[in-house]
Design a protein around this nucleic acid. Structure first.
Length: 532
RNA sequence: GGGCGGAUGGCGAAGUGGAAACGCUGCGGUCUGCAAAACCGCCAUUCACCGGUUCAAAUCCGGUUCCGCCCUCCA
């Protein structure tokens, strides 16, 4: 049984969907006037992981995330830049997808935008006015909070609390200070739409009430977002939706905690935010994802580079273990019933159950990760100990490993995959020139054997050399490719090391090290990778 | 002022009544021409403080100290 912490009841509840085996989820998306920052990325990754887990547990998940593309901040920013508001919003929606895709966030089933749902919004506001929940003042429409007795049930505060502690400057036209806008009269130069109350645009909260229920039904299972949306945004969504439909709006309210910097909330207003795009320049996306999931989603998560460094090392551990397992599967034999295998099979089943138990308990990704690391250690220990490995057992381990990674949305890209992304041709070119220099020195030291081997190597990679007394002329016949160049260099080093020409082998290693390329020599052979 | 949450090893972080997960760091070891990497092992008698309940408390109750968040656009 999955248990979820419901903000509404402030406790964990059994997760029972309205329709068996179908989970309908709505998550508040960003206002698209800028690149998303890390604080925006947390709910993306958190709710994506929840979605993945529900799929893993056999649910059909219908996932909707909105874009707020009509908003003061968008309008202001567009005016500053001298572009149309909708153009600006569209541009940052496209930028949003670049970041979200990098973080391996599954695409939602629907991305509704405010600008495309104006008729539906007007319809709902009209009904609210007819039912007495909304009132019109000079082309503005407000929601009368006093008409909805349950107002405050999500955020756990009473109307009296709010009235006494109100810090809002009161709009004299409001009946109550806490009343909020459903429809805002257009100011000159703003995007606006015709309505029964004159030209204007929707208030912030109404879009989510309207769009979520349009795609998911009047009552749906999960509504998610950052904890800062609990009040007033989600409180107001409930008031609007339930006053409109007279039915419960949402069954489970889930809210993620904040990212903090030096223990202060990361936010646009404080200016202490880090843009995802910049972080992804420095760290692989899967490292960022692991970092975001290393803490329970409701806890605060402090940002600092050392945490990302740690996450990177932790991820290496998983990557290595998975790679070792893959190699072992190639060499494994189809035997069964070995004592070590029986033991391993038992422990694999145990870890699988513990992973599910962790995720069942309000999506405890931190605890789930501990099981992934335990699996990695289990595999490493097993492979270190056994001479004969049973293919079937290894396949079971690999399947479980991959299931874990799929749920957590982690891609363990191989070094070769990574290489194509990180390297540009100029680096390869510089390496080639260094190799030519290296060859020159070897020849000056009368080491013609190494020199000849290098000429062959370079020729294989599309570079021909013409030796003259004063030096060598380098001709690039075709574009060298790092992966094949590296394979050849490793082969050359193997040759040199076999001949005990360690000095030359080490010199090659040093050259590559300058390009952040690390050579690892092991008993089985050598491999290369980029410095973390 | 009102509402909510937190305090766990050198660092990060799970754990809501019964032997303190996991990651990083550190230390020891295996491997190795060397280096690096990788792998294995070890590292909290103790959970902010005080008192209480209980056979049993990091976990429940009361109090104290400190910290964060919401009440205004914010994920």
């Amino acid at each position: 049984m999955i248990r979820v912490y419901n903000t509404s009841s402030r406790q964990k509840e059994d997760f029972i969907t309205i329709d068996p085996n179908v989970a309908r989820i709505y998550v508040c998306g960003p206002t698209t006037y800028n690149y998303i920052h890390l604080g925006n990325a947390r709910p993306l990754v958190v709710f994506d992981t929840i979605r993945r887990y529900l799929i893993y547990r056999g649910y059909k998940v219908i996932y909707v995330q909105n874009f707020t593309d009509v908003d003061d901040k968008i309008i202001n920013r567009a005016n500053e830049e001298g572009v149309e508001a909708h153009e600006l919003a569209q541009r940052y929606i496209e930028e949003y997808f670049k970041d979200a895709d990098a973080l391996n966030v599954m695409r939602a089933d629907k991305y509704p935008k405010v600008s495309e749902h104006i008729p539906e919004i007007i319809q709902v506001i009209s009904t609210l006015v007819e039912k007495g929940h909304g009132y019109v003042r000079e082309s503005d429409v407000f929601f009368g909070v006093a008409t909805f007795p349950e107002y405050g049930k999500l955020s756990g505060r009473s109307l009296d609390d709010m009235l006494s502690g109100a810090r809002v400057e009161v709009d004299a036209r409001k009946e109550q200070p806490v009343d909020f806008a459903l429809w805002k009269k257009a100011k000159p130069g703003e995007p606006s739409w015709e309505s029964p109350w004159g030209k204007g645009r929707p208030g912030w909260h109404i879009e989510c009430s309207v769009m979520s229920t349009k795609y998911l039904g009047m009552t749906f299972d999960i509504h998610g977002g950052g904890a800062d949306l609990i009040f007033p945004h989600h409180e107001n969504e409930i008031a609007q939706a339930e006053a409109f439909s007279d039915r419960p709006f949402v069954k489970y309210w889930l809210h993620n905690g904040f990212i903090t910097v030096n223990r202060e909330k990361m936010s646009k207003s404080l200016g202490n935010f880090f843009v995802v795009r910049d972080i992804l320049d420095k760290y692989p996306a899967e490292v960022v994802r692991l970092y975001l999931l290393s803490t329970h989603y409701r806890s605060p998560l402090d940002f600092d580079n050392t945490k990302l460094d740690e996450a990177g090392k932790a991820l290496d551990r998983l990557r290595n273990s998975r790679a070792i397992l893959e190699e072992a599967m190639v060499k494994a034999e189809k035997v069964a019933g070995l004592p070590a295998d029986v033991e391993l099979a038992r422990e694999i089943a145990d870890l699988g159950a513990k992973f599910v138990e962790a995720m069942d308990d309000d999506f405890n990704t931190a605890l789930a990760f501990s099981q992934v690391f335990n699996l990695a250690r289990l595999i490493n220990r097993y492979l270190a100990g056994g001479i004969i490995n049973s293919l079937g057992t290894l396949e079971d381990a690999a399947r479980l490993f991959d299931d874990f990674l799929e749920v957590l949305g982690l891609n363990l890209k191989t070094v070769a995959d990574d290489a194509s992304e990180r390297v540009d041709e100029s680096v390869v070119g510089e390496i080639i020139l260094d190799l030519v220099e290296f060859r020159k020195k070897a020849r000056q030291e009368k080491d013609y054997r190494t020199g000849d081997l290098l000429r062959d190597l370079l020729y294989n990679n599309g570079i021909s050399l013409e030796d003259y007394k004063e030096g060598s002329r380098v001709k690039f016949e075709s574009e060298p490719v790092l992966s094949s160049l590296m394979a050849d260099i490793l082969a050359l080093r193997a040759d040199l090391r076999k001949e005990k020409a360690f000095t030359r082998a080490d010199q090659l290693r040093d050259i590559l090290n300058q390009y952040e390329i690390v050579i690892d020599d092991t008993r089985e052979g050598s491999s290369w990778r980029f410095k973390a």
